[in-house]
Simulated assay, not measured.
Amino acid sequence: MSIAYIGLGSNLGESQNILQLALADIAAHTAIQKLECSRFYRSSPVDSSGPDYVNAVARLETTLASLELLHWLQELENRYGRERPYVNAPRTLDLDILLFNNEINQSAELTLPHPRIHERAFVLLPLQELSPGLILAQGTLGGLLEQCKDQGIELL
């Protein structure tokens, strides 16, 4: 079994409902077990525009390889109407693999750990909720959150 952390986000449509439905779809996958999810947070867009986001982080165990999981998550995004008209466009559903075991991958298709995980309060805060002792290459979650304190985020 591999352990993966998935960032979930939405800022188009009924975002909370979309994330709840997507979590149910993820939990229903036969290769995914022990799904845990943080609470939902509202955050201001970072490096993008549009309405505020609803964000969460999920921790799961899976028998899928990282690329298999990525492809399946992208299919799920498409089922929820995800469009990619330009980089960082508003989205109905965004599912990012943040961490996958201790895997380091820098391919054109997948970068692990996620390259901006340490710069995003909307990832760090729910990640800290799930795994408070987790330490990233850039530092502790608490220390990294301190560096992101100017980013607007609140618990829903």
Rank of each mutant, 00 (worst) to 15 (best):
residue 95 L to S: 02
residue 43 S to Y: 00
residue 135 I to V: 15
residue 68 E to K: 06
residue 128 Q to A: 13
residue 56 A to K: 02
residue 122 F to I: 04
residue 108 A to L: 13
residue 62 T to F: 00
residue 137 A to L: 10
residue 119 E to K: 12
residue 99 L to P: 00
residue 90 P to N: 09
residue 91 R to V: 00
residue 124 L to S: 06
residue 140 T to P: 08
residue 134 L to M: 13
residue 125 L to E: 13
residue 58 A to H: 01
residue 141 L to V: 11
residue 105 N to I: 14
residue 127 L to A: 06
residue 81 G to P: 09
residue 53 Y to K: 03
residue 48 S to Y: 05
residue 142 G to M: 13
residue 122 F to A: 10
residue 37 C to W: 07
residue 116 R to K: 11
residue 71 H to Y: 10
residue 68 E to T: 13
residue 42 R to I: 13
residue 93 L to S: 04
residue 92 T to N: 02
residue 85 P to W: 01
residue 41 Y to N: 04
residue 90 P to R: 06
residue 139 G to Y: 07
residue 141 L to Q: 01
residue 90 P to Q: 04
residue 36 E to V: 01
residue 106 Q to G: 04
residue 42 R to A: 14
residue 62 T to G: 12
residue 80 Y to N: 05
residue 125 L to G: 04
residue 61 E to R: 10
residue 121 A to Q: 01
residue 75 E to H: 13
residue 74 Q to M: 07
residue 106 Q to C: 15
residue 120 R to A: 11
residue 34 K to D: 14
residue 107 S to T: 11
residue 76 L to T: 13
residue 47 D to E: 09
residue 100 F to V: 01
residue 144 L to N: 05
residue 129 E to M: 05
residue 144 L to C: 08
residue 130 L to A: 02
residue 65 A to K: 13
residue 108 A to G: 13
residue 92 T to W: 05
residue 87 V to M: 15
residue 80 Y to S: 11
residue 43 S to V: 00
residue 55 N to Q: 06
residue 34 K to V: 12
residue 36 E to K: 08
residue 134 L to Y: 11
residue 51 P to R: 08
residue 35 L to Q: 07
residue 42 R to K: 11
residue 83 E to C: 07
residue 128 Q to D: 12
residue 44 S to A: 15
residue 60 L to D: 01
residue 104 I to F: 08
